[in-house]
Design a binder for these strands. Structure first.
Lengths: 251, 251
DNA sequence: CCATCTTTGTGCACGCGTTCACAAAGACAT
DNA sequence: ATGTCTTTGTGAACGCGTGCACAAAGATGG
């Protein structure tokens, strides 16, 4: 699924475009891999290939951070790892709570990617009394009655919601009221939050539906022969896969 | 965020912008809820509020599908549900395989959102012999040796990868070779696939890092008097995601 | 049948993001 | 030093997506 964010288009974080921010973790991962192999420097071309992006885009992205490269040589891997980490705020500890310890919540609690980058699962919270006290990923599940206290005691500012959709909004409200200002939402619900609170959404069902759309399109296009690199332009002879009314008119 | 897509800028699906396609599932969900409450018609304003988007954007999105509204009245809920479902290809059955039945794979297998919209978990596949035969979500796990046969026997075109990152690319290669043309990747790896294969990426770690970035920015702006008039007043646009910045992945 | 009211559909302008293409900057050899 | 070679950093152009604002279309009432 995809992602959506609650964000004001005007407030460009600090000159760093949102699209660039979204790619920084990608670069960081590639750089970390290089660092582990003790590679000292890397060119924009190589790094771009490793991250799966265009090299011009990568250079422009880095230019927003500053001039950290050396012309004729490339970028110092360790230095760049540090700069990106700092920019992303990963040099500090981020306590995170996960609310809703079902299958998905448990999976996230066990997910190694959290701890590896400054994120620490501070608490697991569930509304089911039967869950309270049970160990998941080595952490005891706490009851949601104590949500506010848990948030404030641990100084949590990031919350992950993996509850059923019906209670997601109310959990969200309580998290926000308790001081959480960033939310990662896995429930298939549109959350409404006050200004100043960021919400990112991960929706599995939506991701699949987008794939299905393209899949259907591919299936319906099978008269196109052997993959011509570019299909001219507006296909006027296009038809709905199941023979229905095409209905699409380009603006 | 979580999504990356293999974007072919030239092959614009069929006049329907990618951004619109990504929102259709959102509208569909809101419409389904209305349908269950037997609401006959809905205005663009109401539906937009329910989906958390701007009403002008919603109308423009629908205009790509055709003129399905009635001026002065709004949109017929049932009819719109059908049209969007058809456009997304949800009127047909999509068998899906999940490869890598760890915590996350099991969570996905149990996820109700799959079956609810034409997606059917056709098989669960894992490389660990100890997993083979075990029931997860009522489905017997099969060994990865049989991957190719499973794909072809079930006519699977959509694969979900929830393996450790180390083996994700090779699993991907086998899926593609066996005929899969759409992949939903949960492994923190940049997959390389041939043209014609769509990849969408969901990366939990990246989502958190993006949140951390904004969180840090918020914290750092608290006592800063510098420049930004923008930071002071948040926009008055209320709730709801007003933008969607997908992280674009390469093919 | 005409007037009014509601809501859609869209032309237009604007801004963000991507990409190209190249000058500037440094490394390196002679 | 000077020239050559590599690679960065960025100016500029372009295309996509968003949102405004309004005319067209239909409903509704008199």
């Amino acid at each position: 699924m995809a992602t959506g964010r609650t964000h004001r288009p005007a407030t460009r974080s600090r000159g760093i475009p949102e699209a660039t921010v979204a790619r920084l973790p990608l670069y960081l991962r590639a750089l970390t891999a290089l660092s582990e192999r003790s590679v000292p420097t890397v060119s924009s071309e190589e790094l771009a290939a490793a991250a799966g992006v265009n090299s011009a885009k990568l250079r422009k992205d880095f230019s927003y951070l500053g001039s950290y490269g050396t012309r004729g040589v490339g970028y110092d891997v360790e230095y760049l790892v540090y700069q990106i980490s700092r920019e992303l705020g990963l040099t500090q500890d981020w306590p995170v709570v996960i609310v809703g310890i079902g299958n998905l919540g448990a999976a996230l609690a066990n997910y190694g990617g959290f701890a590896s980058r400054g994120f620490r699962v501070a608490a697991l919270i569930d509304a089911d009394p039967a869950m309270t006290g049970r160990q998941v990923a080595g952490i005891a599940v706490q009851h949601s009655d104590d949500l506010e206290k848990i948030i404030s005691d641990n100084g949590v500012s990031i919350g992950v919601i993996t509850t059923p959709p019906g209670v997601a909004q109310q959990v969200c409200d309580r998290l926000v009221a308790a001081g959480v200002t960033s939310i990662l939402n896995f429930a298939p619900t549109v959350l409404s939050v006050p200004d100043g609170v960021d919400v990112r959404k991960v929706d599995l069902s939506i991701e699949l539906q987008i794939l299905a759309f393209h899949e259907q399109r591919k299936a319906g296009e099978e008269h196109e022969g052997t993959a011509p690199p570019v299909a001219a332009h507006q296909d006027s002879s296009e038809q709905g896969p199941d023979g229905d009314v095409p209905a699409v008119m380009p603006a």
